[in-house]
């Protein structure tokens, strides 16, 4: 159905958000117009500004307004470590751990052979240039523990092999504080297969 007037067009536009169907979109549109025109003004301006100014960091590929993002520019970060994550959300979660003090590279995706997403689609040549800039000594593969994330980690590991870098993969297994009785069998089995000397 083609939107005929401004209200319908707004409802239709809001549906591009994840999880917003026609009903929620209509509720949002009426709320903005009826109860919160100032909020609507802010939303519109913020969207336009973000679209105009946000781009990809030249070093880590995440979203930023500068040429290089604040994290990459920070002198407090360890330039010898590079952590590879799939998305900016993964980067944020990794930062919350406060366990890692190095730099990042955000793939903005993962290899997914069945969806036709190959190495060229996720720009692995940029990662290769970043990881071999001379300063990086260790590459930490922090892609997801799905089959696609594992395939991505394998591919990057092979790509960076024999380049004098230490390549590590984050560990998986029983959650911290986990009691075996309550852990699902698949996780426990994989933790057993990947057990390490104690």
């Amino acid at each position: 159905m083609k939107p005929v007037n401004a209200v319908d067009e707004l409802i239709e536009a809001l549906r591009c958000l994840p999880g917003v169907g026609p009903k929620s979109a209509q509720r949002m549109a009426f709320h903005l117009l009826q109860h919160d025109p100032a909020g609507a003004q802010r939303l519109g301006a913020a969207l336009a500004r973000a679209l105009a100014s946000v781009r990809r960091c030249a070093r880590c590929n995440t979203f930023t307004e500068e040429e290089v993002c604040a994290l990459c520019a920070s002198p407090k970060r360890d330039p010898s470590a590079l952590c590879i994550v799939e998305t900016p959300a993964d980067l944020a979660t990794m930062e919350q751990t406060m366990a890692y003090r190095g730099h990042y590279f955000v793939l903005m995706g993962r290899l997914s052979p069945l969806d036709g997403v190959g190495p060229h689609e996720i720009g692995l040549d940029r990662l290769l240039a970043r990881a071999t800039d001379g300063a990086v000594k260790e590459v930490v593969l922090a892609t997801n523990f799905t089959n696609e994330g594992e395939a991505t980690a394998h591919y990057i590991g092979e790509m960076l092999r024999d380049r004098g870098l230490r390549i590590t993969r984050i560990a998986r297994g029983i959650p911290v504080g986990g009691e075996l009785e309550y852990v699902d069998a698949g996780t426990l089995a994989q933790a057993f297969y990947e057990r390490r000397p104690a």
Partner: peptide
């Protein structure tokens, strides 16, 4: 697609 990705990996 999986064949294409496999070949790209072998070309590294």
């Amino acid at each position: 697609h999986s064949r294409t990705v496999f070949r790209a990996l072998q070309d590294l």
